[in-house]
Design a protein around this nucleic acid. Structure first.
Length: 475
DNA sequence: ATGTGC
């Protein structure tokens, strides 16, 4: 199948309908990003998604798009009530997402040894790395079950958080419709012991400094100002979501066959939204979504404790207010152009415009914060959405996006390149090879990625954050 | 992303 990508305005391309595509694709890229996007199977994967039953509007590729399992990472696909739901279009790490905490501390006052002390204490409190288990004894099987059904509220009522954390989390930290009855015993077994752990790969806890505020009003509303120390947390649903995605990829493949749905790629295995298999996947996915919100909540609690310890003061003297928490691997029912559609975002962030009723009331005027983590040596951004993003179901990119696979990064990036790219950032590893697959050189240029949408008014830049010190999971 | 495994 020959794919045709036609430029249609600045930084915007239409992927024309061909073969079995029911809708067109839209891809956002500038001149630097477009050749990178053409290098892998992203466009073919978008075209595959466009052929699924009940897909509506456009399938969209964000500027950080790259090849994934089924739907590309950086992809958005919406389906109607009579359409399908796909686990591969949500991703392996269900509700992978980002949180930002704002301190009232000036970053310039912090010495390198002091930052190192904070890193060490955070590492003590938050287990990091593949397969690690959580340290909080109160997370019994009963609490786990409560958490997956009620999200972050159950942790906040147990003293692991503040009341205002609730309204500063997407969906209030709980996606409705979760049912642990739809989750395999194996997934429960993995999940119950992993709450409050960081994981590996691109997950991190990072100390940052607000380098620039572009939008004073939004910056003020979000509590951000130049020179301020912030903490960013990037993690997801760990082995729990991973197991659910694997389990349901098989279930949904069989279901597609049963319902006579032609699946263009097993990564896009799917079932009708309104079938037993479709409803079960949604109920299981919602469990993993709530687990991931709770995971970031518990890590937030541990980060607040760690900073309180090292600064030797009460936590709230340091501020440490939650700015916001966004999901970037999720499927949700949302109203778009007057009808409810199931928006699958995989490596894409919801970005509601100012005034949109789904914004939390404290951010109604500005639009909620959209958090975009860079790679570990590069800047992160805080953005807001705009009305112009409606064609993308109010979505923005989710990060920088890979440009080298993990294996390619291990082969191609030298020690000198790694050390140069990390020269101004503290990190928690003695051996650079442990972090090579996450080197800044393995990622696209975050400034290009963010600018691609900002330049055409699909997002507005609010603040740029630069890394000071980072904890990554190591094996 | 992930006990990196059908």
């Amino acid at each position: 199948m020959k794919l045709e990508l036609v430029k249609d305005g600045r930084n915007r391309y239409r992927l024309k309908r061909t073969g079995k595509m029911a809708v067109e694709g839209i891809v956002y890229a500038n001149e630097y990003l477009l050749p990178l996007i053409r290098k892998d199977k992203s466009l073919q994967q978008l075209a595959n998604a466009a052929s699924l039953p009940g897909v509506v509007g456009h399938v969209c590729g964000m500027p950080d798009i790259h090849e994934g399992f089924g739907l590309p990472i950086g992809g958005v696909m919406a389906t109607a009530r009579d359409g399908v739901i796909s686990a591969g279009a949500v991703g392996m790490d269900i509700n992978c997402g980002v949180r930002l905490l704002a301190t009232n501390v000036s970053a310039a006052d912090l010495s390198i040894p002091f930052l190192r002390k904070i890193l060490t204490r955070m590492e003590e409190y938050v287990p990091a790395g593949v397969g690690r288990r959580g340290k909080h004894d109160f997370i019994t099987a009963g609490v786990f079950e409560e958490v997956v059904h009620t999200g972050i509220k159950s942790l906040i009522t147990r003293g692991c958080g503040r009341p205002d954390d609730l309204e500063k989390t997407e969906e209030g930290g709980c996606l409705p419709g979760a049912d642990l009855g739809a989750v395999s015993p194996q997934a429960c077994k993995r999940g119950a012991v992993q709450l409050g752990t960081l994981g590996g790969g691109n997950h991190f806890i990072e100390l940052q400094v607000v380098k620039q505020v572009y939008d004073q009003a939004a910056g003020q509303s979000f509590g951000l100002y130049p020179g301020q120390l912030t903490v960013m947390i990037h993690t997801g649903s760990r082995g729990f979501g991973h197991q659910i995605c694997n389990d349901y990829s098989k279930t949904l493949l069989a279901a597609a066959r049963k319902h006579a749905i032609e699946v263009p790629d097993r990564g896009l295995a799917c079932a009708p939204v309104d079938s037993k298999e479709g409803r079960d996947y949604y109920a299981a996915m919602a469990c993993a979504v709530n687990f991931a919100f709770a995971n970031r909540q518990l890590i937030t609690h541990d980060v607040r404790r760690a900073l309180g310890d090292i600064f030797a003061c009460a936590q709230d003297e340091l501020g440490l207010a939650l700015v916001y928490d966004v999901a970037h691997n999720i499927a949700k029912w949302e109203a778009h152009s007057g009808s409810k559609v199931l928006v699958h975002r995989k490596g894409a962030t919801r970005a509601l415009p100012p005034g949109h009723p789904e914004n939390p009331s404290i951010y109604r005027q500005t639009g909620h914060p959209v958090l975009i983590p860079g790679s570990m040596g590069t800047a992160s951004y805080v953005l807001t959405g705009t009305e112009k993003a409606s064609e993308a179901f109010f979505s923005a990119n989710h990060g920088a996006g890979r440009v080298l696979s993990r294996t390619a990064a291990m082969k191609e990036i030298t020690r000198e390149q790694f050390e140069r790219s990390m020269s101004s950032v503290l990190y928690n590893s003695r051996n650079y090879r442990e972090l090579l697959d996450e080197a800044p050189g393995a990622y696209k240029d975050i400034d290009h990625v963010v600018e691609t949408l900002a330049a055409i008014g699909m997002t507005r830049k609010v603040a740029r954050l630069e890394p000071l010190a980072v904890i990554k999971g190591k094996d």
